[in-house]
Design a binder for these strands. Sequence first.
DNA 1: CCTTGAAACGGATAGCTCATCCGTATGTGT
DNA 2: ACACATACGGATGAGCTATCCGTTTCAAGG
Lengths: 186, 186
Amino acid sequence: MTPQRKDAARNWEHILTVARELVDEGTPLQLNDVARRAGLGVGTVYRHFPTTEALLETVATPCLEALAGHGEQALTHDDPWKAFADFLTRLVEGQVTDAALVKVAATTQDVLPRTTELKAQILATGAKLLARARDAGTVRPDVHDDDLVPLMCGISYATYVHSASPADRLTTARRYLATLLRGLHA
Amino acid sequence: MTPQRKDAARNWEHILTVARELVDEGTPLQLNDVARRAGLGVGTVYRHFPTTEALLETVATPCLEALAGHGEQALTHDDPWKAFADFLTRLVEGQVTDAALVKVAATTQDVLPRTTELKAQILATGAKLLARARDAGTVRPDVHDDDLVPLMCGISYATYVHSASPADRLTTARRYLATLLRGLHA
DNA sequence: CCTTGAAACGGATAGCTCATCCGTATGTGT
DNA sequence: ACACATACGGATGAGCTATCCGTTTCAAGG
């Protein structure tokens, strides 16, 4: 994954850092922009990350991994409903905290295999948690696996429409999710 | 609104028709593109509609007017909860049916005064319906006026993430809205 | 019907962003 | 120290947006 030569590795990290900064400050990710900010040539950036999406996905990867981890952990909880609800909470909290995640989540076609893998894993975990909660009779039976991602994206989107500052976003997102969960509960 | 000279009026209509087609087929609205499709010079299109947003808002206006009308009508219904729920249903159905509406709805800053006015009117009606339903004890007290637009946008967004074809979208949107309404109901 | 000025038209083109390509520089193994 | 591979930089072309102005069309008054 990380390139061989030392300067290349250094630049790779540097590009990623700058990209993270840009994403965090809400600036739309543009590779020429990244290059300028990093004090590197455009070519260098494009060699490391052929497209904006590739860079974005790489930026989002650690966060996706964390979410996948939380999912695994949630599966070990006793209360099926709590496990399910907690997992969804983690997902929306991630999305409203990290702008990279939103964009990656809404995309169907991924550029990096790693992203595809992680998203599939998270989805699978969500499906398991949902099935468990449904079998326990705590979730309405008409909720399907395919609904989880859209609903999470919907909550995040609603949150972004509602509030500008990240602090407000967390509060709002939790409120909206609470409403949704009431609607999902049997 | 419509220009004086006959050729200008004809072109104005024609541009709007082409724009409507482009929006309906999901193509991103680009003024040069509109010009080519309409068999007009770029300048002509830009004179009638200085920006993409202006054209988009003009395309969306009839639909916004219809929604505003439905809102007025809903206010006359007896059952406060039904009136509220029906209005929200109209809103999401509009958004998932008409791509122009989604874009216009999510934008905070409008280009045309007419759009600003209509959106304000729709929001005001929504607020009244919400207040009425809340006073009747049918809506949870922690739902605020500011939440209506974000929630509607969220539902639409979730719907677009979930399903590609317009037919599927209507079904999905209704399902998601039903879930949300259960969550909002006291 | 003809004239005339205003209104509208068309499209060449300037400005901008994105992405590539290749000559130059730098790191690494012998 | 040499040579080769690897990586770097930025000039540059492709594509898109939006403007500007010379030309054309309309319609009101003679």
